[in-house]
Computed example of a mutant assay.
Amino acid sequence: MSSYKKQSLGTKGGFTLLELLIVVSIIAILSVALVLVLNPAETLKKSRDAQRISDLSTIKTALGLYMTSTSTPYLGSASANTACKATPTTAYGTTGATVKLFYSLPTSAGTISDTTLDGSSVTTPASQSGTPSLTDGTGWIPVNFDTLTGGSPISNLPLDPVNAFATGDSVSTVSSASLIYRYACSQTPLAFEVDAQLESIAYTSSENKRTTDGGNNDNLYEVGTNLKILGTGTDF
């Protein structure tokens, strides 16, 4: 065998530096494109919104079961409805100190003292619980589900996946931007409303759930038996 053939057989092919650079560039471009398409932050927000919609559906079902299974249902506390507005359209500023809004925040977040909720002055604007997930009337929704035959239909009261004030909000200024659940009730008719804020583009723009829920507030996602209990403003 000639020396030329020996040399040819002993030579192994490989990538040139230029080829490696081209491959790396293609991988980088595909990675950027994948991130743009998937948008992890938006995907996470949409996942949390889906959880919020599911949570509010669970709460609505549990409250509906409680109301239809109890001879004298109490939506404002474990034993009374004094924390409920007189009617769904009664302004909070005219209700007195006993009527309240209820939030899913624990009291450790600070007792809410915002006095302009619902666009009106409220003496006692909000109620929170130290253990907000309890179903015995001491949780963030003041209904004693445990009194039902067979016990509560839910093991815990759902909490917002974030359950925190929005940037710029505080115990003295709570806006609809805060990612927390809100609950309120009325006495005549006996009814309730539960609201949540959504944060994903998918559910606030392209498929805006807040404007198609049948409620009167396009700033929040609303469920309940009367969607006029909580008002139309941005300060809740």
Rank of each mutant, 00 (worst) to 15 (best):
I141N: 11
V162E: 11
G76P: 04
A184P: 05
L56S: 10
N39V: 04
L105Q: 03
A184V: 00
W140G: 02
P161L: 11
T204F: 09
N219I: 01
T87A: 11
I26Y: 05
A50L: 14
A86S: 15
G110R: 04
N208C: 05
S127D: 03
I112N: 05
G64E: 12
S79W: 01
N81Q: 03
G137A: 08
Q187S: 08
V37D: 00
G10W: 05
V35N: 10
A126L: 01
S2P: 12
S3D: 14
L220H: 02
L117S: 12
Q51A: 12
S3M: 13
G168W: 05
A78L: 10
V174G: 00
A80G: 08
A109K: 14
G76Q: 08
K85S: 13
E19C: 04
L21S: 15
L105A: 06
I154W: 00
I22N: 07
T70F: 02
S8C: 06
V32K: 15
D55W: 01
D235C: 01
W140Q: 03
S108R: 09
F15A: 09
D160I: 07
Y203C: 02
D49M: 02
S3I: 11
T72Q: 15
K100T: 03
K100M: 07
S186V: 00
N226I: 00
R52Q: 09
G137R: 11
Q7I: 12
F236W: 15
T94R: 06
Q7N: 06
K45Y: 10
S31Q: 14
L36E: 08
L56P: 08
K85D: 00
Y74D: 06
V35W: 14
A177Y: 07
Y103G: 03
T70I: 06
A191G: 02
A191F: 07
L34G: 12
A91R: 14
N217M: 04
